[in-house]
Design a binder for these strands. Sequence first.
DNA 1: GCGACAG
DNA 2: ATCTTGTCGC
Length: 235
Amino acid sequence: MLPVINHPWNVKTSDARDIQSRLRQQVILTPLSDSIYTIAAVDVSYTRWDKIGYAVLGIFSVINDNGNEAFTIKEELIKTRIDSVNFPYIPGYFSFREIPILLPLFETISTKIDVIIVDGQGIAHPRGLGLASHLGLIFDIPSIGCAKSKLIGEYSEPGMHKGDYSDLHIKNRIVGTVLRSKEKCRPLFVSPGYKCTIEDARKMILKLCTKYRLCEPIRRVDEISKTLRKSYQNK
DNA sequence: GCGACAG
DNA sequence: ATCTTGTCGC
């Protein structure tokens, strides 16, 4: 699987800013396909001083129950350890930290992916190019950002029931959804990454939220990456 | 200058 | 993100 976009990663934030502003023009928000069968999720866990990262790519083959819940019938996990994490975490430049870590994972697979779920923002970003958008654009694969907290934007608190939501907007532009994925839990910040609409992103994430606040694909890769880190620290 | 600030 | 036990609320 070859990236359709190529640019340097180890750059100053001022250059990263220019790259983001340029690439955002290529982010298109077309409807997601009706037949989503293969869902990927990615996550990275770090050791205490950021030196080592454990990256996981999970590929989940799902089957829909009349469009309500998605059940995983097969999962494929790809894991990597990164011994030197270069780019620091800077809000707004998250993709320049994580994408270089995630790229090797995608090079090993041949499975066709229908959509990538990312724990981070899609277009709900100061320059319209959060990690999910950047990753989707690079591979030309539809993607969705599903963050646990807000990076930018204004919203009113959504209702307290599962599935309730409100718009996340920047100025007068709607960029995502604040979604109550579980009763009495803090909402998720869902925004389309690439080749996905705001509505399709919300519906897909809600469908993948079964018992917990986080959607199942993210929960799963989160669990795996943390387990990898802990097994390292116990040596 | 001050506050906000994905993971 | 990571460190870290108990504790309060549903």
